[in-house]
Design a protein around this nucleic acid. Structure first.
Length: 882
DNA sequence: CAGTGAGCGAGCTTCCGCTTGACTT
């Protein structure tokens, strides 16, 4: 890369850098920032040392003073940043060419702050990658728009304050490591709300009659004595018939009518024809691409985006994260030209079609997703370069783009009314309709897929030629019973559509937000693509709605966007907006801190974790080891595969009637007692069922033997063999030289040895079954402290502490390195290590620690049942669950 | 939602947006 440029241009994406590099002369070096390069640090430990003692260090936003944000360079971009700095050294001008939206403007500002250029700086923007547009952009630079930057900072800080403060409340009141946020909580509420609608839904039943006509088409009963019969749309969500002027027929009535119909006496009484034209769809945005790929190929949002990313990086399509359906002039021309060549001039729209964004809060920094360049490659030309799925996606995008510039289609729908008189006197009218495409227009290029598969049949049905008065016969008449269906659950694409509609999330985050919901255990996909909320999700949403309704109100983001727009226009200040959001004092919100104040007393965690089941006189309680049912004093197991909307009163009764949800493993080979696996307060365990009448209280009582599962076992897979092994504990290891018996067993704090009253922890669960007398004696030879024997020798010392006048030493403990003066102990931070630790730093660590005061006593941690969900890796490297 | 026996230097988890990497076999 020995290009001798003296002007440095920085864009956001490497693929874009490559393309633009071709249009600019040798004087220019084009590099990419690869997104944001600085951000608020993720946790207090990543904060610069000088801020670590601050109360607001965990937020990285100084909520006590002007809401200053502490930004740090992305630790994963050290190499890139030094390359940018090196390139800047050789440059005599800097062009910041990041996207022209809130985030793009902020990236430019962060670049300035980080690179501190000493050469002239220009902000340059372009919306189309053509040599003309780019030359134009270079010739007409502007200054950085600090109002826009402030709007981005406000957005960022609101999200940080909301997310971190509310998540903390959830850790204390629900469970650790879960999360809340402006976008994810609103999205989760959509999913939970939909599930509640399904739970509350009462189905309505109705019937109709289908006639299979001899001419090879079907007709449905439409009306009786000229009154329409009720169909699915005639009912409300309570199963009530609400439509007026309809007659409800039941299945027995429909069956009775069938027996009263003469199959050979149908007459065509009316034929109606309607024509309609249909406009093509707009070119793809991120959201519509995900929806369409979901419908046509059943892909998840992530799969679609991964494939699109690949097409983009290889130069086949334009940028895939966009909220704009607008085609550039170049693209419109290319689409029209190619559509004319392939489908003929008459199928192309007379004038270019212009598309504008309809989505709420659209920023439109990019154009629509379309084939790249000024001459589109046909899918066939790329067949050898693309794998099967990439090909399908390119083909879809290409067709959509061409279709968007093609003519309206024209269709004719013919509806025939066919009547017969039942022998019982009723006049029965049947209807059948078929649609024919009269003029293809854009439909020559693009297929329509109906939202609901069950609707597909009607759109393609054709009718034979019929004339009024014609007499027909039916081959078969069938009475069919139907039920109304509850609203469908969201799928990934339909959720994305809804999120876009209400303006939460951005094209770059739709897929990531869904991944977060899956990752937190809020949502799963137990069957097909439907997103099903967990009981935990309902618990969390119930808490947020009860106590923090404003924050999960769908209008919250919309209101915030209005304020951000005002900030971007210079009409409102960042600090005022943040102050009112965080501390209160504004007209429309009491403030995050006033709202969260006294959370400890105000929130009844148990009540929030109790979910009433309609008409079942029972609750779902969300516990540490999953959900269970509670009715008065009794509880019952709630299997994980019972989805929230399947918990009918009947199902609840069935679960209470089931033998306490125990998983039966078989009979104990010696005692003959039934062995079962259960889930209790301390996690999954096995126990035996004593015969009825066994004395369980008082003198001579027999207690059921129980044993916790090992960490490697799970409630739903544990076997009888496992159970026998567990119940064989405590195991006698042997005798020590004095004849004292040593046993090994499992306890609340893990596996341990016991010799009379003297105990020692075992290193792992397996040791309970394998340790020898020699190994045991070795453990007993060491004092009763945790870890490896006596307190270790200090690794080094740093002189006396100026306050306590005690020697400061560095030691290695359970949690890693720490310094101590014998009284106060302080862990080393991420930036510290044994080599770079100076006496000054050691003193500082200790005084910091002293200042924060003694650590609050916590309750004893309980053993965990299953291995904790997923150790949260860094978000960028997270793999999506299947 | 079961119950047998510690003694101790905790600190972290979490948000939303912008953008693509990839230590090795």
């Amino acid at each position: 890369m020995a290009k001798s440029g003296n002007k440095l241009v920085i864009v956001e994406s490497p693929a874009k850098a490559k393309t633009i590099g071709k249009y600019l002369g040798d004087d220019f070096v084009v590099m990419a920032s690869v997104g944001h390069i600085r951000d608020l640090p993720g946790s207090a430990s990543d904060m610069p040392i000088e801020y670590k003692g601050e109360k607001w260090a965990r937020l990285a936003v100084n909520v006590d003073n002007e809401f200053e944000g502490i930004y740090v360079a992305d630790p994963n971009k050290k190499k890139l940043i030094s390359e940018l700095k090196a390139a800047l050294k050789d440059a005599d001008e800097l062009y910041l060419a990041t996207d022209e939206d809130r985030e793009g403007e902020a990236i430019s500002w962060h670049l300035l702050e980080l690179l501190q250029p000493k050469v002239p700086v220009h902000r340059m923007v372009f919306h189309e990658i053509t040599s003309k547009a780019i030359a134009n952009a270079v010739a007409n630079p502007r200054d950085l728009d600090m109002n826009l930057v402030e709007a981005q900072e406000t957005r960022r800080k609101v999200d940080r304050l909301f997310g971190y403060e509310v998540s903390q409340v959830l850790w204390m009141k629900v469970r650790p490591r879960i999360s809340a946020g402006r976008v994810q909580s609103a999205a989760l509420r959509l999913i939970v709300d939909r599930e509640r609608e399904r739970i509350a839904f009462i189905k309505g039943t109705y019937a109709d009659i289908v006639a299979q006509m001899a001419l090879g088409f079907k007709a449905d009963l439409h009306s009786i004595n000229d009154v329409r019969i009720a169909d699915g749309k005639s009912f409300d969500e309570n199963g009530q018939l609400v439509a007026k002027n309809v007659v409800l027929i039941t299945l027995p009535e429909a069956e009775r009518l069938v027996t009263n119909i003469d199959k050979d006496k149908f007459t065509v009484t009316k034929i109606e024809q309607k024509q309609q034209s249909r406009k093509p769809f707009a070119p793809f945005t991120t959201s519509t691409l995900q929806q369409e790929a979901g419908k046509k190929f059943r892909w998840s949002s992530k799969r679609t985006m991964d494939l699109a990313q690949d097409l983009y990086a290889r130069g086949f399509i334009t940028y895939m994260r966009t909220d704009s359906p607008t085609l550039s002039g170049q693209a419109t021309t290319a689409a029209r030209k190619q559509a004319t060549e392939l489908y003929g001039e008459n199928n192309v729209a007379e004038a270019p079609r212009i598309y504008g964004a309809s989505a709420k809060g659209a920023q439109e920094a990019h154009e629509a997703i379309r084939p790249a360049g000024e001459n589109f490659a046909t899918p066939d030309m790329l067949r050898l370069e693309l794998n099967a799925d990439s090909f399908r996606l390119y083909d879809l995008i290409w067709r959509r783009t061409l279709a968007s510039q093609m003519a309206d289609s024209r269709e004719a729908t013919t509806t025939a009314t066919i009547e017969t008189n039942a022998s019982s006197g009723e006049k029965l009218s049947f209807r059948s309709s078929g649609t024919v495409v009269l003029f293809a227009g854009w439909r020559a290029a693009y297929d329509i897929v109906e939202e609901d598969e069950s609707d597909c049949e009607t759109s393609e049905k054709r009718l034979p030629a019929l004339t009024e008065g014609q007499v027909l016969s039916a081959d078969e008449l069938k009475a069919l019973g139907h039920e109304t269906k509850p609203p469908a659950r969201f799928t990934e694409p339909s959720l994305v559509k809804k999120m876009e509609e209400i303006g939460i999330g951005r094209p770059s985050t739709y897929a990531a937000t869904i991944a977060t919901l899956l990752d937190r255990g809020y949502v799963s996909k137990p069957k097909g693509p439907a997103l099903v909320p967990s009981w935990l999700a309902i618990n969390v949403i119930q808490l947020l709605e009860t106590h923090y309704m404003h924050l999960v109100d769908y209008a919250f983001t919309a209101n915030m966007e209005l304020k951000l727009d005002e900030i971007a226009e210079g009409k409102l200040s960042q600090v005022k907006t943040l102050r009112e959001f965080y501390h209160g004092g504004g007209p429309d919100f009491e403030g995050l801190m006033p709202l969260l104040a006294n959370w400890a007393d105000q929130i009844d965690a148990r009540a929030m974790a109790s979910i009433p089941i309609p008409n079942a006189n029972a609750l779902v309680r969300v516990g540490k080891y999953g959900a269970f049912l509670e009715r008065g004093e009794t509880t019952a197991n709630l299997p994980e595969d019972v989805l929230p909307d399947e918990l009918s009163p009947e199902k609840v009764q069935e679960l209470f009637d089931a033998p306490s949800g125990d998983r039966e493993l078989g009979l104990h080979p010696v005692t003959g007692y039934e062995i079962v696996a259960k889930v209790g307060r301390f996690g999954p365990y096995v126990t035996e069922i004593l015969p009825e009448g066994t004395k369980i209280k008082g003198k001579g009582a027999i207690k059921a033997k129980t044993a916790s599962l090992l960490k490697t076992m799970a409630w739903d897979t544990v076997t009888m063999e496992d159970a026998l092994l567990l119940m064989s504990l405590p195991r006698t290891v042997g005798e020590d030289p004095d004849g004292k018996v040593i046993t090994a067993q499992n306890g609340p704090f893990g596996p341990y040895l016991l010799r009379e009253k003297d105990s020692r922890s075992l290193p792992d669960e397996e040791s309970m079954f394998t340790i020898t007398v020699e190994g045991a004696l070795e453990l007993y030879a060491q004092p009763k402290t945790r870890g490896r024997g006596a307190a270790k020798e200090p690794l080094s010392s740093y002189g006396n502490d100026p306050v306590t006048n005690q020697l400061i030493t560095l030691r290695e403990g359970r949690f890693g390195l720490y310094v101590t003066d014998g009284e106060t102990n302080a862990s080393l931070r991420v930036s510290d290590n044994a080599q770079n630790l100076t006496p000054e730093r050691a003193v500082e660590l200790l005084s910091d620690r002293r200042e924060r005061g003694p650590v609050e006593k916590k309750k004893r941690p309980r053993k965990t049942a299953k291995t904790a969900a997923s150790k949260t890796a860094k978000k960028t490297t997270k793999k999506s669950a299947k």
